[in-house]
Structures are given as C-alpha cells and as structure tokens.
Design a protein around this nucleic acid. Structure first.
Lengths: 197, 197
DNA sequence: CCTACCGATCGGTAGG
DNA sequence: CCTACCGATCGGTAGG
C-alpha cells in the first residue's frame, strides 16, 4: 500500500475549494457530490471533512471570497481619480476584468445564491446591493455634474452592470480579445450608455 | 371522502407546467420534487405521471416553448421594416419585452440548461445561437450601411443581448416602469451602443 | 388519482 | 485518510 507511486501532494484546503468551484460551476451545487470533489483532489468524499465542515461551507467560502474581491477592486478603481467619467470607466474595467478572470466565481455567485443558508444568503445579497449602489452613485454624480446624460439612472446602471456580468458567460481565454481589450472596450460602451462618449 | 369540499378543477397539463416553472425558477430544477409540483396543483406526486412522462419532460417543455416564443417575436420585429436602425430597435424591444414578461422562463432557460438531457441541451444551445446570430447580423448590416459605428460587432451584440437578459433578474411588475417603458428605454440604450443615438 | 414501495443516491458520522 | 454505514430523500412504478 505504501508503495503506490501516484504523485500526491498533501491535500490543502485551497485545492478543495478550487475543485469545488469548478464542479459547482460545471454541474451545479446540488448535482456535485462530496465524492466528486474528493475525486478531484485524490481522496474519498468523507476525507474532506478533515478540512471542511460541510459542502455548504465550500459554497459560502467561494461566494464570500469573490464578492470581497470585486468590492475591493471597485474601491481601488473609484479611489484612483476624482473625475467621475474616469471613475466610471475604471469601475467598469474592474467589473469586466473580474467577470472575465473569475468566470466560474461569477457563475456560481449568481446561480447558486439560492442554495446558501438563509443567513449567508441575506449577507451576500446585502453585499451585492452595496456593489450595485457603487455604480448607481457614480452615474448619479455624473448626471449631477452635467457630464452624463441618461434617460434613467437606474436602467442605465443595470445595463452597465448586466453587460459586464455577461462577459463571464461567453469569455474564453485565448480567443479574439484579451481580458484587457475587453475591459477597455466595455469601458467605451459604458461611456456611450451614459452619453459621454 | 367524496364529501371533501375543496374547490378542485380537473388538473390540466398546462397547470402542471406552470407550477413546475414557478418551482424550477424559485428552488431550482434539482431541488424541486415531483411532490412539490403535485402539491401546487393539489395532487400527489405520482399522480402527475398520468399527465407527464417525467420531470425532465417538464423542463424540456418549458425551455422549448420559451425559445420558440422569443424567436417568433424576433422574426416579427425584424420583418416589420427594412430600416436596419428600426429593425434593431424593435428587436431589442421584443427581447426586453420577453425578458420582462417571461422572467421565470428566462431564468430557467439559462440556469437549468445543464440539467437538460444531452440531446435536448444541444438542440436548445443551437436555437439560442440562432437567436444571437439574428442580432449580430443586424449590427453587422447597420455597420455596413454606415448607420452604426461600433468598436466590435461581437462585443456590441453581446452587450445588447446581455443587458436585455438582465431585465429578467430585476424586473418586478407594478414598480417604477412598465414593460413597455423599459422596452423603449432599452431600445434607446441599444441605439447608443451602436453609435446611432 | 392514491398508497405502498423499489432502487438509487447522498451528506455526514463512527471508528479506526 | 479510509471503509462501513446511517438516515433521509426522491424519481418513478405497481396495482389498484
């Protein structure tokens, strides 16, 4: 038994989370079994419980990590300048970068929200509203400063956010556009939407 | 037993499909049991098998009906005029109307694609590509005719589609905007995206 | 349209 | 980290 030669590094919690992310994105949370996740890191399902408390825990960790990442990126983008046009442009670029680079997190974050326990779900929903509000505030300020011209702040904000989220659905690495190219072009598109192009 | 007074009309297949749609949208396909669906139409789970062949069948019916609806609406919109600007505008309006009026179908259509059997999934994916192509062709023609000015046909098309899909996530009846108001405003936003505003 | 039930699956625990 | 296993759930069928 001790002679089996399979290269096998010690299982780390981060590997388990990464495997769970891929499986949740591919098959869905409910359809993914602890055995599936174990297989991806070369152990049996029950062995995972030495590293994680539950399957639910894995989902919570994935979602919390990604909302914190995108909120941090957003704050950095907005804090990088005082010009509301540049703020919105950079916020959109950060939004798109996140949704291209973290496609699976974005997927799982929206599609599996309902499988979060009640408390975790409410906390996540609140964080997501914070994020949306960040964009709405920028659009509002741009309008107030006479820089943007929009039909409806709310609809324009949703449009900007939703088109960026869409990137996570169709983006594939190594195709026509790089992440940065897409980010810049979506920045341009957002400027058009707010009438500042 | 025969004296129980509960108002109960005969169970129709359409009622079952409608109940399944609501449950699939709310809890997800896998988390919805045949007993859940039965309860919604006042029968036990096993009784449903007199009307439907399987739970999978319900999902297929929901998805096929909605893709056919949106494709039909799209063809009517595009066929209503020869002006490519008006064609795109009306196509966007139809797209948005569908995603506002058929929120749940839109939800289930994208979120539960992976729970379709292999064959049904491939057929659905093909229909969805047809739909996308309809928009891409309009954007291309507008550019060729010198009416639109875009950075990338592909990214602009995705943006237009994705922001419309987003309506199904946040739209609620009886709030700030009616379905038609949203449709018109999204038509305006699409015109801005293609540089024809 | 119902009850009883089969067969399979799965999260998590016991106890090494 | 593993095997054995519990308890619960669920789609679908049998047979009225």
């Amino acid at each position: 038994m001790s002679t089996a030669g399979l290269a096998r590094t010690r299982v780390r919690r981060a590997d388990i989370v990464a495997a769970a992310l891929e499986l949740f994105a591919d098959k869905g949370y409910l359809a993914t079994t602890m055995d599936d996740i174990g297989r991806a890191v070369n152990v049996r399902g029950p062995s995972l419980y030495k590293h994680v408390a539950s399957k639910q825990d894995l989902l919570v960790e994935i979602m919390e990590t990604s909302i914190e990442t995108v909120l941090r990126d957003h704050r950095v983008a907005v804090g990088s300048t005082d010009d509301v046009g540049d703020q919105l442009r950079r916020a959109v670029e950060a939004h798109v970068r996140f949704h291209a680079r973290h496609r699976l997190e974005a997927f799982v974050g929206t599609r599996e929200l309902r499988h979060l326990s009640e408390g975790a779900r409410a906390a996540m929903a609140a964080r997501r509203r914070d994020y949306e509000r960040g964009f709405r505030v920028l659009v509002e300020r741009g309008v107030a400063e006479g820089r943007f011209r929009v039909g409806s702040v709310r609809l324009t904000t949703y449009s900007i956010l939703d088109m960026g989220v869409g990137v996570s659905v169709w983006f594939r690495d190594g195709e026509e556009f790089s992440v940065d190219e897409i980010a810049y072009r979506y920045g341009d598109l957002a400027m058009r939407l707010v009438g500042a192009a």
